[in-house]
């Protein structure tokens, strides 16, 4: 990550932490609404890679505030939601790892049990896939200067992949946490409930699958690979 993006992320963490109690006002005051506005127009001049990084933090810290709407327009909300989801899933994984390494039963940490290890490995794979999807979508959006028509394939694939991961990630996170993860006091629901909401927002599985499926069908069997490789790398 570039030094400029590191600084941006540090700022986001600090501002979002304040916003947890203060609401969206400090986020607006800090100028996050200008993230994508060019420097020539007195904006930050950021790209979608920056937005992806910032929204992954927002997805963990302030999932209920309209940060994505502040940064990007309606057409980019499906892409923005993928970043929020990647962040929230990373946090669900992090909380789960901490919990199973700490919580002891039968005289040892839960993380020592193979059944728990295998579950967390499955969850980690899903989280990695969504992080990769968010990053690949960001590089496509930046390559086509945020033209959502030119990035339609990647938006559909990334949102669909993220949607499909929600079921696995939220289920395993709650399962390995046991009862404490089901309490209001514990932080897990602060990411799992937004994940459930985001799966249905800006296009659920059926919406994107049908759309992507029709697009691919029009390419023909061999056309899929040609299109995929022509669009990146």
């Amino acid at each position: 990550m570039s030094a400029a993006r590191e600084m941006l992320c540090d700022t986001a963490r600090a501002v979002f932490a304040e916003a947890v109690t203060a609401g969206i006002a400090p986020v607006e005051e800090a100028g996050f609404g200008l993230l994508l506005v060019p420097e020539t127009e007195n904006g930050f001049g950021g790209d979608w890679g920056d937005v992806n990084a910032v929204l992954q933090i927002a997805g963990v810290v302030v999932p209920d505030l309209p940060v994505a709407e502040l940064i990007a327009g309606e057409a980019l909300q499906p892409a923005a939601t993928v970043s929020l989801m990647a962040g929230a899933m990373g946090q669900a994984l992090s909380l789960s790892i901490d919990h199973v390494n700490t919580r002891q039963q039968f005289g040892r940490p839960l993380g020592k049990f193979q059944a728990v290890q295998q579950s967390l490995a499955v969850m980690a794979c899903e989280v990695r896939a969504v992080e990769a999807a968010a990053a690949a979508l960001a590089s496509r959006l930046d390559a086509v200067r945020l033209d959502v028509i030119a990035a339609d394939f990647e938006i559909a694939a990334a949102k669909l992949r993220a949607n499909r991961a929600v079921g696995v990630v939220a289920a395993i996170a709650h399962q390995v946490h046991g009862a404490i993860g089901f309490t209001e006091e514990y932080d897990l629901h602060r990411v799992t409930v937004p994940l459930m909401r985001w799966r249905g927002a800006h296009g659920n599985d059926a919406f994107w699958a049908a759309r992507l499926g029709r697009q691919v069908a029009a390419l023909g069997g061999r056309g899929l690979w040609k299109a995929m490789t022509a669009r990146g790398a």
């Binding site: 896939a129 969504v130 990769a132 999807a133 690949a136 394939f153 990647e154 559909a156 694939a157 990334a158 669909l160 992949r161 499909r164 599985d205 059926a206 994107w208 699958a209 049908a210 759309r211 992507l212 499926g213 029709r214 691919v216 069908a217 029009a218 390419l219 023909g220 069997g221 899929l224 995929m228």
Partner: peptide
């Protein structure tokens, strides 16, 4: 994809879409 044709039945379009998203990721 070739068997489904350019105007696939809804359940085939859904399956092709899901498999494509997985493969892309």
């Amino acid at each position: 994809i070739d068997a489904a044709g350019p105007d696939p039945a809804p359940e085939l379009a859904t399956l092709i879409g899901e498999l494509t998203a997985e493969m892309w990721a």
